[in-house]
Amino acid sequence: MSDELVLYTNPMSRGRIARWMLEEVGRPYRTEILDFGPAMQDPAFRALNPMGKVPMIRHGDMVVTETPAICAYLADAFPEAGLAPAPGDRLRGPYYRWMFFAAGPLEAAVTNRALGVEVPGERRGMVGYGSYGAAMDALEAAVSAGDYVAGDRFTAADVYVGSHIGWGLAFGSIEKRPAFERYHARVSERPAAQRARAIDDALLPPRA
Rank of each mutant, 00 (worst) to 15 (best):
A135F: 05
A86P: 01
E140Y: 02
A141G: 15
A114R: 15
G82C: 09
Q41S: 10
V25T: 02
T111A: 14
S144R: 13
S144G: 15
D137R: 15
E23N: 04
T31P: 01
R30M: 00
E66M: 11
G116H: 08
G116I: 01
Q41G: 04
P120Q: 13
G121N: 10
M62E: 12
P94C: 10
M99F: 00
R113Y: 04
E140I: 05
P94A: 10
V25L: 03
V143C: 11
Y129N: 11
R27W: 00
A39G: 06
V64N: 11
R27Q: 12
M56D: 04
E107P: 00
A81C: 03
G128C: 13
G52A: 10
D89W: 01
Y29P: 01
L91G: 03
P87Y: 07
A134V: 06
V63E: 04
G104A: 14
A72H: 14
G82P: 07
E66S: 11
A134Y: 02
M62C: 07
P79F: 08
L83I: 05
V119A: 12
L48N: 04
A77R: 12
G133S: 13
A39N: 09
G133W: 02
A135M: 10
E118W: 02
P55D: 09
K53F: 02
R19K: 10
N112G: 07
L139H: 11
F101A: 12
L139N: 12
A102I: 02
P85Y: 06
M99R: 03
V54Y: 03
T65F: 04
Y96L: 14
V117Y: 06
E122D: 15
M56I: 04
F100M: 13
G133T: 11
A39C: 08
R113L: 11
M40S: 07
A134I: 03
A77S: 12
P120W: 10
L83F: 01
D76H: 11
P55Q: 10
G88D: 05
P87E: 09
M126D: 14
A134E: 15
E80P: 00
G37E: 08
M136G: 06
W20T: 05
M21S: 00
Y29N: 05
P94N: 10
W20V: 05
L106I: 04
A81L: 03
